[in-house]
């Protein structure tokens, strides 16, 4: 298979990732886990878009996946195209929307430490000559030198903010990549067809799913065995 086909003809796998996250989030009461990250909260909120061909269903609600409308769309053959997720992890919460076929992120909200520091200070930082004078401080440095210093200080603050934002962004990306890795281990194994899809059908139809049995089955050794037994070699 050519590279272009490996990419373009398998974009539906991203939709299946969102479907899997949605189902597991509901089955496991919004608490997922990975071996690297431990357990964390993850659920779909505010927006869920499903589609098949030209037919699509857009749901905007606090918990859009919970209603029958979303499950009915699944039973009509639609799969998630985009979803807004809330992730509660490390005493913090992050919100983002993800496009299934490109894994592009939208509206990733980061509550950075620097934001927190500003918020802790009352949301505003006061300063200047008048404030200094009121505080009984002597007049500051000459204006020109101070302007240069302030400009440099502003640049340093921007650099620090950028680094902090990128670090937090990478943490979120890393969490999503780990979930995708775990999903792929299932999706490319016999367990997908034998365990996951039957559970999905029951869940989408509103029937009860034996959560403990599902959890046990998907964690079993065969869960990560590829659908065709071959010697494993990392590529």
């Amino acid at each position: 298979m050519q590279l272009i086909d490996l990419i373009e003809k398998r974009r539906f796998v991203g939709r299946e990732l969102l479907l899997w996250l949605w189902m597991e989030s509901e089955l496991f009461e919004a608490t997922l886990e990975t071996s690297e990250h431990g357990s964390f909260g993850l659920w779909i909120e505010k927006k869920l878009v499903l589609s098949l061909g030209e037919e699509s269903t857009r749901i905007a609600a606090p918990m859009p996946g919970l209603g029958r409308e979303a499950k009915e769309a699944l039973l009509r053959g639609q799969l998630p195209e985009a979803a807004a997720l809330r992730i509660a992890w490390k005493d913090d919460e992050t919100a983002l929307a993800i496009d299934a076929e490109s894994f592009a992120l939208r509206g990733l909200k980061l509550r950075t430490l620097l934001d927190k520091a500003t918020a802790d200070a009352g949301g505003e930082v006061f300063g200047g000559d008048l404030v200094d004078e009121m505080a009984g401080k002597k007049p500051g440095r000459p204006k020109k030198k101070r302007a240069v210093d302030e400009e440099r200080e502003r640049e340093l603050e921007e650099e620090a903010a950028f680094h902090e934002r990128m670090t937090m962004t990478r943490e979120v990306e890393d969490l999503l990549a780990t979930l995708y890795r775990d999903f792929l281990a299932l999706r490319l194994s016999r367990t997908w067809g034998a365990v996951v899809v039957p559970a999905m059908r029951r869940w989408a139809a509103g029937e009860s799913v034996d959560v403990d049995a599902y959890r046990k089955a998907r964690r079993s050794k065969s869960a990560s065995a590829p659908s065709k037994a071959r010697p494993e070699k990392r590529r």
Binding site: V13, L17, L19, F103, A177, L188, P226, S227, R234, R235
Partner: peptide
């Protein structure tokens, strides 16, 4: 894309073969 991220995570030979034969759920 789903493929490029999977590739960076690291497909096994068997997983790559399974990837080529995937059908949509």
């Amino acid at each position: 894309s789903p493929y490029t991220l999977g590739k960076r995570i690291g497909f096994t030979d068997a997983q790559l073969e399974a990837w080529e034969e995937l059908e949509p759920t």
